[in-house]
Write a protein that binds this DNA or RNA. Structure first.
Length: 613
DNA sequence: TACAGTCCTG
DNA sequence: CAGGACTGTA
């Protein structure tokens, strides 16, 4: 047997709550007064009928409509196995609406009701409407069809019916004559077991019985009837009210419970969704921020080692470089210079507080991907990629084998076990390996020294390159007071400058060749100022965002370098091995003292806050 | 041999 | 920018 349609939760609960034990009920009402009770019940039923004609009328309607409903929804009878009483009860509870809705249909067809009764209770629950209290008369098509208020106390059927009615009234449930074994009292008991005031009912029943018996002794049937009617009317009314109240309360309770639960569920879901959305929004926001201003992010406040995405400015710079380098439409330097009047440093030095108003140790970042790199990592990785911002942790350049080693805590044999190694705080390797980093914080916040070079340090080094192309390592160390140097990070810093030189000379050679290609014959024809294309390229590369104003001497140094390359190329010295070294020597002469403010922590701070690359 | 710097590559 | 091979020098 299919279980019919889905059952609305509240209804289910309700019907469940109303389930009862028929035997218990019968025990309650199984007095010796059985006959009297039956008669009395019949009286009440009649009375009820008289007083509420409409209700009587509706009962058959209901049955009919119910059946129709069943047919319509094509519900199958599902519960032959189920307790008929239960199904009946549920049906009764639900049906009230059926009355009002479909009264017009086949009002008298009581047979249909039977089939309906056997149908699944679940399907009927849909129709549950608490307003309805009386549904009794249904089973006795014969009895109530007449409708007249005549009371036949002697009719056994009536007794049954009346009993049913009583119970129904109490709980808006009804019995079915269709179920021979069904005991109407069971119904009542069931109802009583519910919220209905059973005691009251029983008392009333007792009183009624007494009255009835007394009346029975009298010969005046008329009087008897009258009294009974009155009593019955009162009783039924009271019962109705009681039932209505209790049923309504129950329904309200169930519904409110259900609503509350559902509402809570929905609210929770909504909250979850909202949280997810917010999370996503925040993520997006952060990503956008990172893309826009990767350098604005203070590494100190990036405990999560948030990956930095590609820096558009870097890309732009690279673009410029590429275009300039590839652009063979290099014009006459003189003309170019003439065209460029405007300064390329619209923004003046952005570190007014070089005197160190910030005073304290510059924040240092040690985010370090640190995890044994399989490939080399760069400082820029932190800027462009998921890697941390720190330059390589302690600069241990891992051997190829080491780099490919999956062991997170693997240290290459060449690595010097520097005592501060673990200070690569935030260094991925350290973290992953669970290596101790206990003194990290103290060093980080108190000593103010780190072993990790960050992209800030890189920017600073680039700016220093404007003053010196060949800084001794000793000088470098002095200009990075926040770094605790050891072999590896020193090598790293030196390597930076090596790379700087590489880029620097590469562009010199390129431009020199261009001059040569343009037919320039004398180095004196080459003039370089701050408007020169080459100078701009250099400025973009080493001084992004015009963080500082390039030294006055820089254009001259660039000019000298360019001329040296030009001369070498013009004279064909480039054929010789290591022909550049002579040039390097010359250029080294132009190194100058690096301003002291580079040592200031405030400078680093400004650099950090200067944002764009 | 050790070190510093360059060159090449990714 | 970093890794590594290579070269030159002491």
């Amino acid at each position: 047997m299919s279980s019919g349609g889905t059952i609305p939760p509240p209804l289910v609960q309700f019907s469940q709550a109303n389930s009862f034990n028929p035997s218990a009920l019968s025990s309650l009402f199984n007095g010796s007064q059985g006959q009297n009770e039956n008669i009395f019940a019949a009286l009440m039923a009649r009375n009820e009928l008289n007083e509420n004609k409409k209700e009587k009328e509706t009962s058959p309607d209901f049955n009919d409509s119910f059946k129709q409903e069943l047919d319509r929804s094509s519900f199958k009878e599902d519960d032959n196995t189920q307790n008929d009483l239960e199904s009946l009860e549920e049906y009764e509870i639900e049906k009230p609406e059926g009355f009002t809705e479909e009264t017009s249909q086949k009002p008298e067809n009581g047979n249909e009701r039977h089939s309906a009764m056997s149908s699944s209770s679940s399907s009927k629950r849909k129709r549950f409407h608490p307003q309805r209290t009386l549904t009794v008369e249904e089973d006795s098509q014969d009895d109530y069809d007449e409708g007249p208020p005549v009371i036949d106390e002697e009719e056994p059927q009536d007794n049954q019916d009346s009993d049913d009615e009583i119970k129904e009234e109490r709980h808006s449930t009804s019995n079915r004559s269709a179920q021979p074994e069904f005991n109407p009292f069971n119904m009542a008991a069931h109802l009583a077991a519910q919220n209905v005031n059973m005691n009251k009912f029983r008392e009333f029943m007792e009183a009624q019985k007494r009255v009835y018996s007394a009346l029975g002794n009298q010969q005046d049937n008329e009087l008897q009837k009258e009294v009974c009617n009155r009593l019955l009317a009162k009783f039924s009314q009271a019962l109705k009210d009681e039932l209505m109240n209790s049923v309504q309360n129950s329904i309200e309770k169930v519904v409110s419970h259900f609503n509350a639960a559902e509402t809570e569920k929905l609210l929770q879901q909504a909250r979850q969704i909202q949280q997810l959305r917010q999370h996503q929004l925040e993520k997006q926001k952060q990503e956008q921020l990172q893309q826009r201003l990767p350098f604005n992010l203070n590494p100190m406040f990036n405990p999560m080692n948030m990956p930095y995405n590609q820096n558009p400015l870097m890309a732009l710079a690279n673009q410029n470089l590429a275009s300039s380098s590839s652009g063979m439409n290099f014009q006459n330097p003189v003309m170019t210079m003439a065209k460029m009047n405007g300064g390329i440093f619209p923004n003046q030095p952005t570190f007014p507080g070089l005197n160190g108003f910030l005073g304290q140790q510059m924040s240092r970042v040690r985010n370090e991907d640190g995890s044994p790199r399989k490939k080399r990592s760069k400082v820029t990785d932190s800027v462009r990629g998921p890697r941390s911002m720190a330059v390589r942790d302690n600069g241990q350049s891992l051997q190829a084998s080491a780099r490919s080693s999956p062991a997170a805590n693997y240290f290459p044999p060449t690595m010097v076990p520097h005592p501060l190694y673990n200070n690569g705080r935030f260094d991925g390797a350290s973290v992953d390996a669970g290596s101790p980093s206990s003194n990290d914080d103290s060093e980080y916040f108190d000593v103010g020294q780190s072993t990790t070079l960050t992209h800030i340090h890189l920017r600073k080094a680039k700016l220093m390159f404007f003053y010196t192309r060949y800084p001794p390592s000793s000088v470098l160390k002095n200009y990075f007071p926040d770094i605790q140097f050891h072999k590896n990070n020193t090598a790293q810093l030196v390597k930076w400058f090596s790379n700087f030189r590489e880029f620097y000379y590469m562009n010199m050679e390129k431009f020199a060749k261009q001059y040569l290609a343009e037919g320039i014959t004398e180095p004196e024809m080459i003039k370089v100022n701050s408007d020169h294309e080459l100078f701009k390229i250099l400025n973009v590369h080493y001084n992004k965002n015009n963080f500082i104003q390039p030294p006055e001497t820089l254009p001259h140094v660039v000019e000298v370098t360019l001329r040296e390359f030009f001369k070498a190329l013009r004279d064909g010295r480039d054929a010789e091995p290591s022909w550049k070294k002579a040039i390097y020597k010359v250029i080294q002469q132009y190194d100058e003292h690096i301003p002291e403010f580079f040592k200031s922590p405030a400078f680093m701070t400004q650099l950090e806050g200067s944002g764009s690359a």
